[in-house]
């Protein structure tokens, strides 16, 4: 498919002097579907003409959020539904991601320190980076339990 085809369901609204592009994506919480949804997200990046640093930050954050939902929220229920709403503009990417899985412990997304890396090679961490990356690259992170749904929202910023 040509790269300049807009993402399905994408709509462009002129707001002030920057274009805002909205995308709705639904997937099942499976690693392959998480991987494949980025083809649609890449097309939305093109439509919204996002700068490259914001594209990278958005892909890192969304990949970690979606992996977390698959691994934790739906740990006892494979292939649960995930609904994403992305609002892309040159100023940042707002997202709302909804799933039906387990409630977030303490109703609060983790805010971990970066795992220690000045240790012996055999003691190096092989995980624990996901929430650190999400927290580092987002602002206004909010979690809510709404009925049987988890709602996670935040804004992803460009660098600097």
């Amino acid at each position: 498919m040509p790269r300049d085809v807009p993402a399905r369901q994408a709509t462009n609204i002129k707001a002030a002097d920057s274009t805002v592009s909205n995308v709705e994506i639904q997937i099942r919480a499976l690693p392959e579907e998480v991987r494949n949804c980025f083809e649609q997200i890449h097309r939305a990046f093109e439509t919204a003409e996002l700068p490259s640093d914001l594209r990278i930050n958005t892909e890192v954050v969304l990949a970690e959020v979606l992996n977390n939902i698959a691994e934790h929220s739906y740990c006892d229920r494979p292939a649960g539904q995930i609904a994403m709403n992305l609002e892309l503009s040159g100023d940042g990417v707002k997202f709302l991601i909804v799933d039906d899985g387990n409630v977030m412990p303490n109703l609060t997304p983790p805010d971990p320190e970066l795992p220690k890396i000045d240790v012996e090679v055999s003691d190096l961490p092989e995980g624990g980076f996901g929430w650190y990356l999400i927290r580092t690259l987002t602002t206004d992170l909010e979690y809510a339990r709404v009925g049987s749904h988890n709602h996670l929202r935040a804004r992803i910023l460009a660098d600097g």
Partner: peptide, 20 residues
């Protein structure tokens, strides 16, 4: 073109396989 934290973890595993 892209690596997530699971991929990063796999790279650390690879490093450990090399021992010293």
């Amino acid at each position: 073109e892209f690596m997530d934290s699971s991929g990063l973890g796999a790279m650390v595993s690879a490093l450990k396989i090399l021992d010293n």
